[in-house]
């Protein structure tokens, strides 16, 4: 009994550590693939790990008060909690019957944490970035909620483990084919949550110099980079679990998550950035309509194909 608990704790810690490293490697993949699209050689895959070590090695403290510190911690904490909810490779760390909904909303926590901290920094660029970020999250809320409902209605369950179980069998059982509308909407919203083009409006480097991140340096930035990488992995894993038939063994885990990440990277490299109000009205038009369609399909046809 006691041994079980210890093994479970060890597995949890190991898993979190692994996912953190994996998140950084994913960012490395993003930079490498972007570089190849730019026709460059690009940095090695482990580059973000070096970046994080370097940021931890900065000597000066760089704090603007408690809220500022808390912001980056909340970002990382949210990402880690979200990671623990995922049933990866047969491990069920924190899963319970309603974990799908919790996961979906935990994915927004890193962005909110960054904004909380940034608002405390007092830099005008951060302020602009923060209100852009809040508007973007508000805009994403409606289609996001509808799409989540569509998925829930499709599978008639809110547990990720059961969602995976329902997708076994043939490839046509995958969520992608059962409810393509919801899959598309969640992919679009994912771009907004991950802060990449065309939705990298909160941190537009060419407009407002990284927005909320402008005052973050050193350790805070290290935490944030880690959180961002983890968010990337969590999103990719969540997407593979809900729409691509689950990740029950290491090979399918790697293949599916990297596939999702590559899609995001390709999109990010061929689209410019929207203006905030254009993004907002876009989000409330097509994704919302698609999500509604998905919901209607799920409710009308149920789980049947």
């Amino acid at each position: 009994m006691a041994l079980d608990v210890i093994v479970e704790i060890l597995a949890t810690v190991g898993m979190v550590f692994l996912l953190l490293i994996l998140g950084l490697i994913f960012m490395g993949i993003a930079r490498k693939v972007s570089a190849r699209i730019h026709r460059r050689i690009g940095p090695p895959l482990y580059q973000p790990i070096l970046d994080v070590i370097k940021l931890w090695s900065k000597i000066d403290p760089s704090s603007h008060g408690l809220t500022f510190d808390l912001g980056s911690l909340i970002a990382l904490g949210g990402a880690i909690t979200a990671a623990l909810l995922l049933p990866i490779m047969g491990l069920k760390l924190l899963s319970f019957s309603g974990d799908f909904i919790v996961l979906m909303y935990l994915m927004e926590l890193p962005a909110l944490g960054i904004m909380l901290g940034a608002a405390a920094s007092g830099n005008p660029f951060s302020a602009v970035g923060v209100y852009r970020g809040l508007i973007l999250i508000t805009g994403a809320q409606l289609p996001y909620a509808l799409a989540v409902m569509a998925v829930a209605a499709e599978y008639k369950t809110l547990s990720l483990t059961e969602i995976v179980a329902l997708q076994q069998g043939s490839i046509l059982n995958w969520g992608l084919f059962r409810n393509p509308f919801a899959a598309l909407v969640i992919a679009i919203i994912g771009l907004a949550l991950l802060d990449v083009q065309p939705f990298d409006i909160p941190s537009a480097p060419a407009e407002i110099s990284m927005g909320p991140m402008v005052e973050y340096g050193g350790k805070h930035l290290a935490l944030m980079l880690t959180a961002h990488g983890l968010e990337f992995v969590v999103f990719a894993t969540m997407y593979s679990i809900v729409f691509l038939g689950g990740v029950s063994d290491p090979i399918s885990f790697i293949v599916k998550t990297v596939f999702v990440a590559l899609l995001a990277i390709f999109i990010m490299n061929v689209y410019p950035r929207w203006r905030i109000e254009q993004a907002f009205s876009y989000l409330w038009k097509y994704p919302t309509a698609l999500a509604l369609l998905g919901l209607v399909k799920a409710v009308m046809l149920g789980g049947a194909m």
């Binding site: 699209i37 083009q197 065309p198 537009a204 060419a206 490299n269």
Partner: peptide
């Protein structure tokens, strides 16, 4: 300026 770095690099 519009956030598309690919063409700039090319």
């Amino acid at each position: 300026a519009v956030g598309l770095y690919t063409v700039g690099q090319w």
